[in-house]
Design a binder for these strands. Structure first.
Lengths: 260, 260
DNA sequence: CCAAAAGTGTTCAACGTACACCCATGT
DNA sequence: ACATGGGTGTACGTTGAACACTTTTGG
């Protein structure tokens, strides 16, 4: 007798199914009003008010409702916790080790999300919710520390071949502003000249005819994204790198323009 | 009142949790004894024997047992279906749309796996299990067609920066054999000369002092992998690209698994 | 005028690709 | 001898990093 095929009857009732979300934003202050020179990645955590791990901080999340999709659950967690709507949302991974939670068996499907810097700053949080800098997290409950690390890795990775930086900026932005986002996320300095050329030739961004004045230097041209926000809620192979092979290979089939 | 933090109480009992596996192997025959010139990707499917989708083919899988980890569930599905052990196993994605299954609500955590070509050939399958070429699948139940497409994309993607081709080859192999694997998976011809150099400089592979004779041509040197099998069962950021930066900063650019 | 960021140009090394060519074996 | 794949050499175009240099504003 072999196992039956996938969607099937009902699961063992002992296995709980939860959805959690790692929410990122970019902030330039230190949380007390002082302004850092470089912005950094921040994320909201929820203080647990029961066992296990009572008192520790944890990722916002909760059980999956029977009538909500996975992304909806992640999104609604986010809104309930921060009163914000995600500008980007993507599934991260399903964590299901047997010993994640001391007593019960819980599988957590984790999403990661980006929210706007400006909006995040204005938000008032509940009593048991606080923003923390990603590089100075308190002790976390469960395996949430690993989850955050993995989400950070994914964020940094993704930044390099997509326009998720969109989520941190307004409708229009200067290339310096965009570069600062990249520098904050990747935590390294980028050559302004090379960065400019890379972005301009990526096709993700479009010149406007406006300038941003005000700095005590030459005004900077404003740009806008060519496409609206990315919401990869269905994992589709297409990566739309918009690259065309210069010389060769009519590789028969629609050789997907995949990344790695 | 806000949603509580992650691993938590119990889920709505209406939501089922299943684990399915997309199993790939490489075969050179057409299923009837004739030998194709180029091997292709094949995968086993299970014929459903009940509603919904009775009679259609589906991915092997089943409900998650309370005492098994996600990877164990995927692995055991694989063994039950094909009597094989996976040489590679990785989580693909969690599919949880509301309308995946007509009546009930089921979330499927899907894994993808590779099994050895030689082993797969020797295996006898049960009555309701059959291998199909990935490019000629029958109509599939549920959203399994999309899932397979996504898994294929991931396989092709991953082939280029890891040594998962390991799974299709023996302990030692010639560079031609390795190239044939790549050509079969990527479905395009590769320049033997350039392929050789790329692989040799990748550090993933090591020369032996043995040769493979027998062809009516110059004997080919045998190689072996520098590392054993990859089993990324914890999604760790480190990709171990083992690349040495020639001049400047260790910019270890790596590509992410997962979609656009 | 000076500081500072915006924006352009140039050089160089690394890398992928195409392709010519030699090597060693079985028949 | 010759066909066939194993294996080496090389030239060229693209890309990315480094960095010199010009431009335009505010003070």
């Amino acid at each position: 007798m072999q196992r039956s095929t996938t969607p099937v009857e009902q699961t063992d009732p002992q296995v709980g199914l939860a959805v959690s979300t790692v929410i990122f934003t970019l902030r330039a202050d230190d949380g007390f009003g002082a302004t850092d020179p470089q912005p950094g990645i921040w994320l909201p955590l929820v203080r647990r008010i029961r066992e296990p791990y009572d008192g520790l901080w944890a990722l916002p999340g909760g059980p999956l409702g029977a009538a909500e999709s996975l992304a909806d659950a992640a999104s609604s967690t986010l809104e309930t916790t921060t009163s914000l709507r995600p500008r980007y949302l993507e599934q991260l991974y399903a964590f299901g080790d047997l010993d994640r939670s001391p007593a019960e068996r819980v599988v957590s499907i984790v999403y990661w999300a980006l929210v706007g810097s400006d909006e995040a700053k204005r938000t008032r949080l509940g009593q048991n919710v606080r923003w923390f800098p990603a590089d100075a997290l308190p002790p976390l409950a469960f395996d949430h520390r690993d989850i955050v690390e993995y989400a950070l890795w994914r964020l940094r990775n993704k930044l390099e071949y997509s326009h998720i930086a969109h989520a941190f900026l307004g409708e229009t932005f200067t290339l310096s502003e965009l570069r600062e986002v990249h520098e904050a996320v990747l935590q390294k300095q980028l050559d302004p000249a090379n960065f400019r050329r890379q972005v301009e030739s990526s096709g993700l961004v479009l010149q406007t005819d406006e300038l941003r004045t005000g700095g005590r230097h030459r005004p900077a041209r404003l740009y806008r994204w060519t496409q609206p926000v990315t919401r990869p809620e269905t994992p589709s192979p297409g990566r739309s790198t918009s690259r065309r092979p210069t010389t060769s290979t009519p590789t028969t089939r629609q050789q997907s323009e995949e990344p790695a």
